[in-house]
């Protein structure tokens, strides 16, 4: 087990080096000039060249990458071109908002998605099943942008129950979290339903019922636990994605998260910020993947790593 973890950590480190190199090169071969994006349209070429020199972009690519790697090991991800502040600080300032939103969306996904899936599976063919299927289809097919705007117009403008946008209190979190959760919730509901249905037909469930176990125990302790492995895989991938930032939801709700930050940074060719966000989210993704793989052994004792 220990050897396994060490091997995985080593692989993760390689992945991250690969990601950093790829991001670094792709950004610099893209058409577009950072200084030109920072300066107003009417800036003379001499000002563009001067600013690019200040930004260190006049050096050859391999020199730039070398300097970058060296400073990353000192915890310095470079200065954001747009914000003129350390890129890591700019990104970390947004990380809190992203984590809040991702966790809230994840909570909704797990609580509602799994419950809907269980109900649909247990009451297969009833109106509960159909209702949950309809919800799942809606959740997966409604565009986030449209759903977000509709929620704002209904709960913010018409009813005035919740704030339309912004990042202040838990009340500001509700609408964006629901919007963001719509898709993964639907996915999880459908997945829970299908894997529950498969498990509920197995012999050990019949045995459980035959020996007089309460239906609740059969479903939650025996069926759900066995259905949880594929669910965990999906949830792990989803939380990785959510933590990487949710561009559309953040835009609609003016949520100051990492998603919008990185899109703007790509748009304005703010290389240090893009690099920092991508390396950070790749790290998060890799770590969560590792955790999920380790969690399998807890949920399903048959799984062993050596």
């Amino acid at each position: 087990m220990k050897a396994y973890v060490l091997r995985r950590l080593w692989q993760s480190a390689l992945t991250l080096v690969g990601v950093s190199l790829l991001v670094f090169v792709i950004l610099r071969v893209l058409p577009g000039d950072p200084a030109k994006m920072l300066l107003p349209e009417g800036a003379p070429q001499s000002a563009v060249d001067e600013l690019n020199r200040h930004l260190g972009l006049h050096e050859p690519l391999h020199v730039q990458y070398g300097l970058f790697v060296k400073s990353v090991f000192r915890g310095d991800f470079g200065q954001s071109f747009q914000y003129r502040a350390p890129a890591l600080r700019v990104v970390v300032e947004r990380l809190g908002a992203t984590v809040q939103l991702a966790l809230a969306a994840m909570l909704i996904t797990v609580l509602i998605g799994v419950s809907l899936g269980i109900v649909a599976a247990v009451r297969r063919g009833t109106r509960y099943d159909y209702a949950s299927t309809v919800l799942a289809v809606l959740g997966q097919s409604l565009p986030n942008f449209w759903l977000g705007i509709m929620l704002i117009l209904l709960f913010g403008v018409a009813l005035r129950w919740l704030p339309t946008s912004g990042f202040e209190s838990w009340r500001h979190l509700i609408l964006p979290a629901v919007t963001l959760a719509a898709f993964p919730m639907a996915l999880v509901a459908r997945l829970t339903r299908s894997s529950m249905l498969e498990i509920l037909g197995r012999d050990f469930i019949r045995t459980g019922r035959a020996k007089g176990l309460a239906e609740r125990a059969v479903i939650l302790r025996h069926a759900l636990r066995n259905a949880a492995v594929p669910l965990l895989t999906v949830l792990g991938l989803q939380i990785g994605t959510l933590l990487g930032g949710a561009v559309i939801t953040e835009s609609v709700f003016a949520w100051p998260g990492m998603g919008k930050l990185v899109v703007d940074a790509i748009f304005f060719r703010d290389f240090p910020v893009v690099q920092t966000v991508l390396i950070l989210s790749a790290t998060i993704f890799v770590v969560i993947n590792l955790l999920v793989d380790l969690l399998y052994t807890v949920i399903d004792p048959r799984i062993r790593y050596s």
Partner: peptide, 18 residues
């Protein structure tokens, strides 16, 4: 000053009186 780049959201916040 709140920064709300999306126009429909900015307009919604105005209409909601925020």
């Amino acid at each position: 000053f709140r920064f709300i780049p999306e126009l429909s959201t900015r307009a919604a916040a105005l209409r909601a009186g925020e």
